[in-house]
């Protein structure tokens, strides 16, 4: 019991203002708090706990430990835009990728020799497998309604098997297309 009172006292007075209409209670709590703090080994303005570190325990990875900087070439920009089917929009977008790569390069200071890659936190659990039978269906209409362009029971797409135009032409195409 005494323990829990002390705990309350340790925590509550830190509020820089009293609750409305509970001045007297606050004072009483503050009194308890003094008693508790005095009995604590290190009493000063706030309660210490030696287990909590007082200063940062690590520093960011230093640049000199990283592999050489990777510059993203115009060819790579083109390749990524074709693969991702999104555009960098401007030079700032490219610089942003370079920064993202630089940030990721910090991985290389970690020794991962003989470490198995982890792709799921459920790797040791047996997961439920349902019977391979249809439980739902008959919702083609609901699903088709969500599309902008359909014909009978088909989604309608423009002509396929045409590669994206070259970069300059592509920029022009996208420039005119805003939401």
């Amino acid at each position: 019991m005494r323990g829990s009172q002390c705990v309350a006292a340790l925590l509550r007075p830190a509020r820089p203002w009293p609750r409305r209409g509970v001045w007297s209670l606050s004072r009483r709590v503050a009194h308890h708090s003094r008693r508790c703090l005095n009995s604590a080994p290190s009493s000063s303005r706030h309660v210490h706990n030696a287990k909590v570190p007082r200063t940062p325990t690590w520093q960011p990875v230093h640049e000199t430990l990283l592999p050489p900087v990777i510059h993203v070439s115009p060819d790579l920009v083109d390749k990524l835009e074709r693969l991702a089917l999104v555009d960098f929009r401007n030079q700032e977008g490219v610089e942003c990728l370079e920064k993202a790569i630089r940030f990721a390069d910090q991985l290389h200071v970690v020794n991962t020799e003989f470490v198995e890659p982890m792709d799921s936190v459920l790797e040791d659990s047996s997961l439920y497998l349902r019977e391979d039978t249809v439980h739902e269906g008959q919702c083609a209409e609901d699903v088709l309604q969500l599309a902008k362009n359909t014909l009978e029971e088909y989604f309608v797409a423009p002509p396929g098997n045409i590669p994206l135009p070259k970069r300059e032409e592509r920029s022009a195409m996208l420039k005119n297309s805003e939401f």
């Binding site: 835009e81 977008g93 195409m173």
Partner: peptide, 27 residues
Amino acid sequence: STDALYAATRHEGFNDVVRRRILAGNY
């Protein structure tokens, strides 16, 4: 073309943050 539709749709629909994460992921 289908690819042009994809690229334009994604250009118009995603903000810079989303596009940049997609590009970094593809890298």
